[in-house]
Measured scan of single mutants.
Amino acid sequence: TFELKGKVGKVVKIAEDHYLVESEGDKWIAYSDEKLSLGDRVMVVDVDGLKLKVKRIP
């Protein structure tokens, strides 16, 4: 299986209740415990079905 946990991506869209993150050339629906901005670099900390939980990284 394709393992996304630990992968790095970038926030490419902000929606009302989720983010769109591009990682490894694909776009994924993501959510975070912190507020993210367009262009933020993020790391995948968990995968919930087809949704990614991400956190901001420097």
Rank of each mutant, 00 (worst) to 15 (best):
Gly9Phe: 06
Lys51Met: 13
Val45Met: 11
Lys7Tyr: 03
Tyr31Glu: 14
Leu52Asp: 01
Phe2Tyr: 03
Tyr19Glu: 01
Ser32Cys: 11
Ile29Pro: 07
Lys35Gly: 10
Leu36Lys: 00
Gly25Ile: 03
Leu50Met: 09
Lys27Asp: 10
Val8Thr: 08
Ser32Ala: 12
Arg56His: 11
Pro58Arg: 04
Val44Asp: 01
Asp33Thr: 08
Glu16Ile: 12
Lys13Leu: 10
Val42Pro: 00
Asp40Leu: 04
Glu16Trp: 11
Val42Gln: 00
Ile57Ala: 09
Leu20Gly: 06
Asp33His: 08
Asp26Lys: 07
Ser37Gln: 08
Ile29Gly: 09
Met43Cys: 15
Asp33Ile: 06
Lys51Ala: 13
Glu34Arg: 06
Asp33Gln: 08
Phe2Asp: 15
Lys27Ser: 13
Tyr31Gly: 08
Tyr19Asp: 01
Ala15Asn: 10
Glu22Cys: 12
His18Pro: 00
Val11Gly: 00
Val47Gln: 07
Lys51Asn: 10
Glu16Arg: 07
Lys5Thr: 14
Lys27Leu: 10
Asp26Pro: 04
His18Leu: 11
Phe2Cys: 15
Arg41Glu: 14
Val21Ile: 08
Val42Ala: 04
Lys27Met: 08
Asp33Val: 07
Lys27Val: 06
Leu52His: 02
Val21Asn: 01
Ser37Cys: 09
Val44Ala: 03
Ile29Thr: 06
Ile57Trp: 13
Val54Asn: 00
Val11Ala: 01
Thr1Gln: 15
Leu4Lys: 14
Arg56Lys: 11
Asp17Val: 10
Val45His: 06
Lys53Tyr: 12
Val42Gly: 00
Lys13Ala: 10
Glu34Gln: 07
Lys53Gln: 14
Lys55Trp: 08
Leu38Asn: 12
Ala15Val: 12
Val12His: 05
Asp48Leu: 11
Glu3Arg: 01
Glu16Asn: 10
Leu20Thr: 10
Tyr19Lys: 00
Val42Arg: 00
Lys10Pro: 02
Leu36Pro: 02
Val11Cys: 07
Ile57Cys: 14
Leu50Asp: 06
Arg41Trp: 06
Leu50Arg: 08
Lys7Gly: 04
Val47Tyr: 05
Lys55Pro: 00
Arg41Phe: 11
Tyr31Lys: 11
Ser23Val: 15
Pro58Glu: 12
Lys7His: 04
Leu52Phe: 03
Glu16Met: 12
Leu52Thr: 03
Lys51His: 12
Met43Ser: 06
Lys10Met: 08
Leu38Gly: 04
Pro58Trp: 06
Glu3Lys: 01
Ile29Lys: 07
Asp33Glu: 09
His18Phe: 08
Ala15Thr: 10
Val47Pro: 04
Glu34Val: 07
Thr1Lys: 15
Asp40Ile: 04
Asp48Thr: 08
Lys5Trp: 15
Val21Arg: 00
Lys35Thr: 12
Ser37Ile: 10
Met43His: 06
Asp40Met: 06
Gly25Ser: 06
Thr1Phe: 14
Leu50Ser: 08
Ile29Met: 10
Ser32Val: 03
Arg41Gly: 14
Val8Pro: 13
Leu50His: 12
Gly9Arg: 01
Glu24Gln: 04
Leu4Gln: 15
Gly49Val: 05
Lys13His: 06
Gly25Pro: 05
Lys10His: 09
Leu20Asn: 04
Ser23Gly: 06
Asp26Phe: 13
Arg56Leu: 14
Ser32His: 02
Ser23Asn: 04
His18Ala: 09
Ile14Glu: 10
Leu4Asn: 06
Val44Gln: 01
Leu38Trp: 13
Met43Asn: 04
Glu34Cys: 08
Glu22Ala: 05
Phe2Lys: 15
Gly9Ser: 02
Arg41Cys: 13
Val54Leu: 05
Asp33Lys: 07
Pro58Ala: 09
Asp46Arg: 02
Glu3Phe: 02
Lys7Cys: 12
Glu16Pro: 09
Arg56Glu: 06
Ile57Tyr: 10
Glu34Tyr: 05
Val44His: 01
Val11Pro: 00
Glu34Gly: 07
Glu24His: 03
Val12Gly: 04
Val11Leu: 05
Asp33Asn: 06
Asp40Lys: 01
Gly9Trp: 02
Trp28Gly: 02
Leu50Phe: 12
Asp46Gln: 03
Gly6Met: 01
Val45Gln: 06
Gly6Cys: 03
Gly6Asn: 02
Asp26His: 11
Pro58Met: 07
Asp33Gly: 07
Val45Cys: 05
Lys53Leu: 09
Leu36Gln: 02
Lys10Arg: 08
Ile14Asp: 07
Lys7Glu: 05
Lys51Asp: 08
Val42Phe: 02
Leu4Arg: 02
Glu16Gln: 09
Val12Ser: 08
Leu38Val: 08
Thr1Ile: 15
Val12Arg: 04
Asp33Tyr: 06
Val11Ile: 06
Leu36Met: 07
Glu22Met: 07
Lys10Glu: 14
Val42Trp: 01
Arg41His: 12
Val11Gln: 00
Leu38Pro: 10
Phe2Gly: 15
Glu24Val: 04
Ile29Arg: 11
Lys35Ala: 10
Glu16Ser: 11
Trp28Glu: 01
Asp40Cys: 06
Ser37Trp: 09
Lys13Gln: 07
Ile57Pro: 05
Val54Gly: 01
Gly49Phe: 07
Asp40Asn: 08
Ala15Asp: 10
Leu36Glu: 00
Val54His: 01
Tyr31Asn: 14
Lys5Ala: 15
Val47His: 05
Tyr19Cys: 11
Leu20Phe: 09
Leu38Ile: 09
Pro58Ser: 10
Val42Cys: 11
Val8Glu: 14
Val11Arg: 00
Lys13Arg: 10
Ala15His: 11
Gly39Phe: 13
Leu52Lys: 01
Glu24Trp: 03
Met43Phe: 09
Val21His: 00
Gly49Glu: 08
Tyr19Ser: 03
Asp48Pro: 03
Lys7Pro: 01
Ser23Phe: 14
Asp17Lys: 10
Leu36Cys: 09
Ile14His: 06
Val11Met: 02
Val45Trp: 09
Val21Asp: 00
Gly6Ser: 01
Glu34Thr: 05
Asp33Ala: 07
Phe2Glu: 15
Ile29Tyr: 14
Glu24Gly: 04
Lys55Arg: 08
Phe2Ile: 15
Val42His: 00
Val45Glu: 14
Met43Ala: 06
Lys51Gly: 13
Lys13Ser: 09
Asp46Tyr: 03
Leu4Cys: 15
Tyr19Ala: 08
Phe2Met: 15
Asp26Gln: 13
Asp26Leu: 13
Glu22Thr: 05
Val54Asp: 00
Val45Ile: 06
Thr1Cys: 15
Asp17Met: 12
Val11His: 00
His18Tyr: 11
Asp40Val: 07
Ile14Cys: 09
Gly25Leu: 04
Arg56Met: 12
Glu24Ser: 04
Ser32Ile: 03
Gly6Pro: 00
Ala15Arg: 12
Leu36Tyr: 05
Trp28Asn: 02
Val47Thr: 04
Tyr31Gln: 13
Asp48Ile: 11
Asp46Asn: 03
Val45Arg: 02
Glu24Asn: 04
Asp17Ala: 12
Ser23Met: 15
Tyr31Cys: 14
Lys55Asp: 14
Ile14Thr: 07
Asp48Met: 05
Arg56Tyr: 13
Arg41Thr: 12
Lys13Ile: 08
Ser23Tyr: 02
Val21Gln: 00
Val42Ser: 01
Val47Cys: 12
Ile29Cys: 13
Phe2Asn: 15
Val42Asp: 00
Asp46Trp: 04
Lys55Met: 14
Leu50Tyr: 14
Glu16Ala: 11
Lys55His: 13
His18Arg: 12
Val12Thr: 12
Tyr31Thr: 13
Lys35Arg: 10
Ala30Pro: 00
Lys35Met: 08
Met43Lys: 03
Lys13Met: 13
Lys5Tyr: 15
Val47Met: 09
Ile14Tyr: 08
Glu22Gly: 04
Asp40Arg: 01
Val42Tyr: 01
His18Ser: 12
Val8Arg: 03
Trp28Asp: 01
Glu24Cys: 10
Arg56Ala: 12
Val47Leu: 13
Lys55Leu: 14
Ala15Lys: 09
Gly49Cys: 07
Glu24Asp: 07
Lys7Arg: 07
Glu24Leu: 05
Lys51Trp: 12
Val45Phe: 05
Glu34Phe: 04
Leu52Arg: 02
Lys53Gly: 10
Ala30Thr: 14
Gly39Val: 03
Gly9Tyr: 02
Ser23Cys: 15
Val21Phe: 15
Leu20Trp: 09
Lys13Glu: 09
Lys5Ile: 15
Glu3Gln: 02
Ile57Met: 13
Val8Gln: 08
Gly6His: 02
Glu3Cys: 03
Asp48His: 07
Leu52Glu: 02
Val8Ala: 05
